[in-house]
Amino acid sequence: MPDLRIGLIDSNDAVRTGKSMVFNSQLDMRVVLEESDPVTAIERASDYLVDVLVVGPSQHRLRGGQFIEALCMSLLLAKNDGVVLAYGPFSSPQSRYEALKSGAQEFIGLDEPAAKSLAMVRKIVKRDFHVPIEDLVEFSRQNDFGPVPSQLEAIKASYLENQHKVIDLLLTGINDQAIAKELDMARTRVTSQIEKLMESCGFNTRNRLILALLQAAK
């Protein structure tokens, strides 16, 4: 089984040590980066070829979504496929939405058991991962995602009927395999089309793409 390379970013040493012990105790995971300074983390994260960056809430100078957004942007510019798992002291829908909107793949509270974060790390590295569609719909209903990138509408306008169906099926929450089966096409084509759309709009996660699509449909 290939190793999952984990990066830990938290200015609280004790929390980082605890997390490190949890991940290093797993056979398929290895902590390759530990960083306490957020600014250094933004500069160095993309060099480490991490699969998952586990990012804590206590970031000196950069608070909340601001840090996650900068980190994701740095990974995106370096064409690094690493994803961000954000965590906070407590799990709450608002913290989760803020993290997802900023570019995190998922959010978890420190009040939840470590087993859940281990399972989540394994889940979020999948290419077609996004949080359950019902959750995204609810977030979109309660919050304003902000301006939708103009490229999104332009690209959608140039789509053929089959490509539109991919988007429609993505919004139903099914995975790429199921979309491919439904439309009788190759899974890689489905994945490729969605990823191209994400890249054109500057989104690093499917969560952000779906939130933007839901916002555009409002």
């Binding site: 609280n12 004790a14 929390v15 040590t17 997390k19 012990m21 949890v22 002291p89």
Partner: peptide, 28 residues
């Protein structure tokens, strides 16, 4: 909250670490 989170995190990490490496108990 941060300090309590640290306690929880360290003790929980310790449980996992001891299971895979009992020698780490003292450090944990």
């Amino acid at each position: 909250v941060q300090k309590i989170s640290a306690v929880v995190s360290v003790t929980e990490g310790g449980r996992y670490a001891i299971a895979s490496d009992p020698k780490s108990a003292e450090r944990v």
